[in-house]
Write a protein that binds this DNA or RNA. Sequence first.
DNA 1: AAATTAATAGTAATGATTACTATTAATTAC
DNA 2: GTAATTAATAGTAATCATTACTATTAATTT
Lengths: 128, 128
Amino acid sequence: MFRESKQREAILRFVKGTSSHPTANHVHEEMRKEIPNISLGTVYRNLKLLKREGKISELDIADSKSRFDGNPHNHYHFRCERCGRVFDVDEPVNKEIDKRIARKTGFKVSHHILEFRGLCRDCQSSNE
Amino acid sequence: MFRESKQREAILRFVKGTSSHPTANHVHEEMRKEIPNISLGTVYRNLKLLKREGKISELDIADSKSRFDGNPHNHYHFRCERCGRVFDVDEPVNKEIDKRIARKTGFKVSHHILEFRGLCRDCQSSNE
DNA sequence: AAATTAATAGTAATGATTACTATTAATTAC
DNA sequence: GTAATTAATAGTAATCATTACTATTAATTT
């Protein structure tokens, strides 16, 4: 089914070996150093494939389209992985965790974004 | 400085009045019902403006480019709002909160995504 | 070594968003 | 109230990340 390719091996090796959370373009630039004519399409295809195989992950959060919220205050959301709908979650925002992370890392933490993922009620009951 | 326009008023009224977390395109479609020739550019411009004014918010999370991570297991991140770099955060994943939200909402919660935002050490010290 | 076909390179297409520009309309000056 | 000013708009073109397409290349199998 799958064949080995030096392109895919190199992409996996690089992403596994860096903590820079590179974009597809970053990976492409890096790859060109050892495989000068590697194409961007190959990078995209393999990143997606390696993700499907569970060897790497993607910090996507949110799909390609941005969504807006009439509530301007920070609050949490739930996104259904099947229908794509987004719901507000009625859970108090944990401000303590920002302080803890700030203490641990030395970063200045202004806020955090928390999104739950799974299946909404409709999508659980609909069998298909 | 700012002038009122029926387009902006209608957009704000709609986004404030729905819990559907609409995309720019959803807002545009809805607006066309009452202002048939409103342009998509106007919708985008006003959504951005209303966000800047703090009247609505955007569920962007992540910018336009997707980032990849050699660690395939769920973990938290910190994103610097100034330089854009993403760092891993060494904090145990809270599985209890998924259960609590599931109990509260009736949704099936598979996991959650948590991203801290603020200024990394470099960007705090660089004065500019 | 030849046959098969997955993977690639290179290019074109897509889709969300932003930029641009002439026109319209809200506000200000008279 | 009317004319002058200029912010906001409609409509279109441009941009940018990502995906699709296709002829060619190269792993793997026979």
